[in-house]
Design a protein around this nucleic acid. Sequence first.
DNA 1: GACGCGAATTAGACACAGTCCAATCCCGGC
DNA 2: GCCGGGATTGGACTGTGTCTAATTCGCGTC
Lengths: 141, 141
Amino acid sequence: MDYRQYARDSLADVLRAHGINPTHQRIEIAHALYSRQEHLSADQVLAIVNQRHPETSRATVYNTLNLFVEKRLIREVIVDPSRVFYDPNTSAHYHIYDVETGRLTDIDAAAVRIEGLPALPAGMVTEGMDIIIRVRRDQDS
Amino acid sequence: MDYRQYARDSLADVLRAHGINPTHQRIEIAHALYSRQEHLSADQVLAIVNQRHPETSRATVYNTLNLFVEKRLIREVIVDPSRVFYDPNTSAHYHIYDVETGRLTDIDAAAVRIEGLPALPAGMVTEGMDIIIRVRRDQDS
DNA sequence: GACGCGAATTAGACACAGTCCAATCCCGGC
DNA sequence: GCCGGGATTGGACTGTGTCTAATTCGCGTC
């Protein structure tokens, strides 16, 4: 009874709590995201999931990630036009994005205060707010 | 001597001021962005530029937009994983993004104050900060 | 344990934004 | 008018993500 097996068992409950029917593939995909504190692209998830024996199809990975986003189990992070990252951390937080390495780092939103944002147009509601700080190594000029 | 002709003439100077050799295509592309206060995708720019007679190739539009970004004449706005928007407004500002219509609206940064952001990791410099407020019509639920 | 059914998964074709490349064109300097 | 280098071009190519029709899986029922 190793830690990872345990994690997989409890993941089934997490999925159910979000109204998601827990299947093997979905649990593996959730595990890939939750077991490491990183922001993964769909391709990376696909590669990780397929390191273990059963081949999981690309379509399933994309379907599942979109399902997870829809059910608010994970969040999309849109910082790079070439691919979407998925973030298992759904608590309020922002991101630092290293434009050279592609690495994403979390900023806890609790410490940040923002003032002076305009009111939304009438009849609009906020879906969410993203803050992305783009950084790079300081070496050129 | 119409307004648009005048605008095109002065655009050549703007391009030169940014170290960009002003060619016909580049002026047309700059004009497409500057003459309307909208955030356009590369495809939209291509369509607008080609409404006037001379066919401009897709490669040139992409090359030119990337050149403009590199030379800080315009900014990329990355909010939609399916395509990049280009923003002729380079002054500090943020965005409201309507996730249903895809419409982007500017928020002037001058009025906004942000406190409590953590210090950057040592040796890192900020390239820029994006704030995106995702909104939708309030009708469901 | 076999059956049946709806949901999930699958492979592969497809769509589409964006990039690359080699050939051509354009334009300013002589 | 000629030359040379940068700009432009069409078209092939890449990579991410979606769609679809067919298959498989899981599970409740007998």
